[in-house]
């Protein structure tokens, strides 16, 4: 990935990924909501060696603007050969249960806006017959649990969407990489007490780029989550529904 569009560039995992890409001398187009913070990430990337850094502040919930955004990024960087979709919200499960509008907002940010961006990007990459799409999903999308099934459903839908897209784009030499982090120590989880299962954003970013370089399909980062989720997926539903998870 040499000319990369980063969506949700001010998220902790995206920032760590941006640094690694900048150190490789990649050209980057950064998108995030807060202009001031986006500027801080852009300057950091430029100082760390990115060949070119452009940025645009916008709310990615606005799906109508996606087609133009992708076009603009490609123009700015002189083409695109990679995209990292890192924007997302954890949401509040209790609030989402009480009011559909809250749940809908989580679905919009985590699934609908990602799917919309992927539609534009996939069509472009399919036509140019090259490119890597890296999308951050979550282990939470592997099985619905009462403690966060709205977030889980948004990520689960994203994972399925990516499976289909990968199947479609395999013949066009486009890699579709689904990255499923477990718990990550970021501002998104600042309120959660940390334990040994938590990974750093840098650790996740390294795993993400390794998967992108290797054109992997679905990866868990850190890798031990593959085992944890295998167990969680294997529990029969009659038992699972009685568990406090």
């Amino acid at each position: 990935m040499k000319k990369v569009l980063i969506l949700g560039a001010t998220s902790a995992i995206a920032q760590a990924t941006v640094r690694l890409l900048a150190a490789r001398g990649a050209s980057l187009y950064l998108v995030g909501r807060n202009a001031q913070n986006l500027e801080a990430v852009a300057k950091d990337a430029a100082t760390r060696g990115a060949a070119k850094v452009e940025s645009r502040a916008m709310d990615l919930d606005d799906c109508g603007a996606h087609e133009a955004l992708v076009e603009q990024a490609a123009q700015a960087l002189g083409g695109l050969d990679g995209a990292v979709i890192a924007h997302g919200v954890l949401g509040d499960q209790d609030a989402s249960q009480r009011a559909w509008a809250t749940a809908e907002a989580v679905m919009r940010t985590n699934f609908l806006s990602a799917a919309s961006l992927l539609t534009s990007l996939a069509n472009r990459f399919e036509a140019q017959k090259t490119g890597t799409l890296v999308v951050i999903s979550s282990v939470a999308g592997d099985r619905g649990r009462q403690s966060n099934y709205v977030y889980g459903a948004s990520k689960g839908a994203l994972t399925v969407f990516l499976q289909g897209l990968r199947n479609r784009l395999a013949k066009s030499n486009v890699a579709v990489v689904t990255v499923k982090p477990g718990f990550v120590d970021t501002p998104m989880t600042a309120h959660v007490p940390k334990n040994k299962l938590f990974a750093s954003p840098e650790q996740v970013a390294r795993g993400l780029l390794r998967a992108a370089d290797g054109r992997k399909n679905e990866v868990y980062v850190p890798g031990f989550w593959a085992l944890i989720m295998l167990i969680i997926r294997s529990i029969p539903e009659p038992i699972f529904k009685r568990l406090k998870l």
Binding site: A12, A40, V41, K43, D44, T47, R48
Partner: peptide, 18 residues
């Protein structure tokens, strides 16, 4: 986490960072 670089000028050796 205030660990971002802001600017480095290799001609003058002035570094600005968080």
């Amino acid at each position: 986490a205030l660990d971002r670089l802001i600017d480095f000028d290799p001609a003058t050796g002035v570094l600005r960072c968080e």
